[in-house]
Amino acid sequence: MNRYEFEDLISDYIENSLSLSKRKEFENYLTEDPEAQSLVDHVHSTMDQLRNIQQVKVSDRFNERLMSRIKNEKLPHRLKPVSGQKTFMGFTPVYASLMTGLTIALLFVSMQLFSPDMDTSTSQNQFYANDPVPTLSSPATPRVNPKPQDLAEAEEDSLDENSANLPKKDYTKRIHLVND
């Protein structure tokens, strides 16, 4: 056994964890070198000093302080939203804006459906594709929709025209009554 091997095994020797053969080898080295024995004694003594070092303890108010820190520091964790994202009336910003848009659209559609002035407001003063392009000298006069009674007259006229033009057919020979 050389010096390095000896030094490496000092702790194992003191803690009694050497195999029997190694222990014998170690003790032989000690008997041959008195300085080695002194080193082992010093290491042993140092270990004892460390074990008997004055123990430091926490203060009497340790638990009390800890208790108040737990109370103060755990509260924000509980209040923190799970996602960590800001919300508006329970909705995330994306959903909040989508919901707002949808509501406005619904309101607009329902106003259009149930408004009593719908016919007049949309049918008056319209231009059509075949109308002449208005100029400064002849300002455009919007085509006014015909009044309901005019339409009725027009329909009657057209019916009369059609009935006049069509040849009258004789269906008498084609009709067979039950008793005939």
């Binding site: 000092i10 194992d12 003594s45």
Partner: peptide, 20 residues
């Protein structure tokens, strides 16, 4: 770990020689 502890003990005993 064992090696480090052994080395630390050797160094400490050298530093604390005058305490004995």
């Amino acid at each position: 770990v064992k090696s480090r502890i052994n080395r630390a003990r050797l160094q400490l005993q050298a530093d604390l020689k005058d305490l004995r």
